[in-house]
């Protein structure tokens, strides 16, 4: 490959590379650095050292928002990824697979605000379809979004419907699994469960792990959007998440310093995820191997 060709290739990468720099790296560094300043966006930033960190940490809403965010990531993420995987396994072949593919992907294709409105109705404590069903079954019908204990589970429940991206990735990954392997296992008398457990899961483990990390990042924002649209963070902060703390600190109280300090918590979480991704990528040579790039 000569240099000219390569240079022209790199020119094609230019918009992407510049975009990453301008829309991701620069803003990330900017918000990273602002944590050391008192900045209300009106007067010039004033260097305050690490003052913003204790300010954020001692705000009781901050720890609450971190807790809520973690709760809305740790519980739904594995469920979502595993659910997406199972749905993809089911949708890989056979009759009605097209219907299933359309159905699974549809909620993720809806605008978030439309999806939220549908759930606002589904979860309506007195007249919504869900509680009608529960009451018809003589089960107790919780107040869902209006009940501090049930608001988080309600949002986690709705999040289980938004698995479109993971579903696609799993479907693609499953297509890369040679069918010979499964056929051989089936010939050996392995049932569907055993094939899943001993053939597919080990093969797809790196993809699922990467997906889980990606899903955690997605969930940080998705759970906020949904909570914002469904319950506004309430009742009494039950669904108040870290992004909302940051949004309110920055755009509500003009406290960009504290908002950025709180962002650091996000970076720590994200950083841990990144290390995980890197280790997984190294371990399995995903994306680095000569063979297949799966994500």
């Amino acid at each position: 490959m000569n240099d000219g060709y390569e240079r022209r290739l790199k020119r094609l990468l230019l918009p992407y590379g510049m975009g990453i720099g301008l829309l991701f790296v620069v803003p990330a560094i900017l918000s990273f650095a602002l944590a050391f300043f008192r900045y209300d966006a009106l007067s010039p930033p004033r260097f305050v050292g690490t003052l913003n960190f204790p300010l954020a940490r001692t705000d009781s809403l901050f720890s609450l928002s971190v807790f809520n965010s973690l709760a809305l990531v740790i519980l739904p993420a594995p469920l979502r990824v595993f659910g997406a995987f199972l749905a993809a396994r089911l949708a890989r072949g056979g009759r009605l697979r097209h219907l299933l593919r359309a159905a699974v992907f549809l909620p993720a294709a809806m605008p978030a605000s439309a999806f939220a409105l549908a759930w606002l109705w589904i979860l309506n404590p007195l007249y919504g379809p869900l509680n009608r069903l529960l009451m018809a079954l003589s089960l107790s019908a919780p107040g869902w979004l209006s009940d501090a204990q049930w608001a988080r589970p309600a949002i986690a429940l709705a999040l289980l419907w938004l698995v479109g991206e993971g579903f696609l990735v799993c479907l693609a990954a499953l297509y890369d699994v040679p069918r010979d392997l499964e056929d051989a296992a089936a010939a050996d008398g392995a049932g569907a469960g055993a094939i899943l457990r001993y053939v597919l899961l080990p093969l797809l483990a790196p993809v699922l792990l990467l997906l889980m990390a990606r899903d955690a990042v997605l969930l940080l924002q998705e759970s906020f959007t949904l909570a914002w649209l469904l319950s506004g963070g309430g009742p009494y902060y039950a669904t108040y998440t870290l992004p909302q703390f940051i949004y309110e600190a920055a755009f509500g109280r003009l406290d960009f310093g504290v908002a950025s300090a709180a962002l650091w918590a996000l970076y720590v979480v994200t950083g841990l995820l990144l290390i995980l991704v890197y280790l997984v990528a190294r371990q399995w040579q995903v994306g680095l191997s000569e063979e297949e790039f799966l994500l």
Binding site: L13, I20, L22, L23, F24, V26, P27, A28, L30, S31, L34, A41, L210, A213, R214, V217, L220, Q221, F224, L242, P243, I246, Y247, A250, F251, F256, A259, L263, L266, Y267, T270, L273, L274, V277, Y278, A281, G287, L288, F293, L295
Partner: peptide, 26 residues
């Protein structure tokens, strides 16, 4: 190639909320 794939994976992991205010200013 590897560098770009890795970079892309890393960028995928940046939470959107981290970019709101600075993108707004940008």
């Amino acid at each position: 190639q590897r560098r770009w794939v890795l970079l892309s994976l890393l960028v995928l992991m940046i939470p959107g909320v981290a970019l709101w205010s600075s993108r707004f200013i940008l």
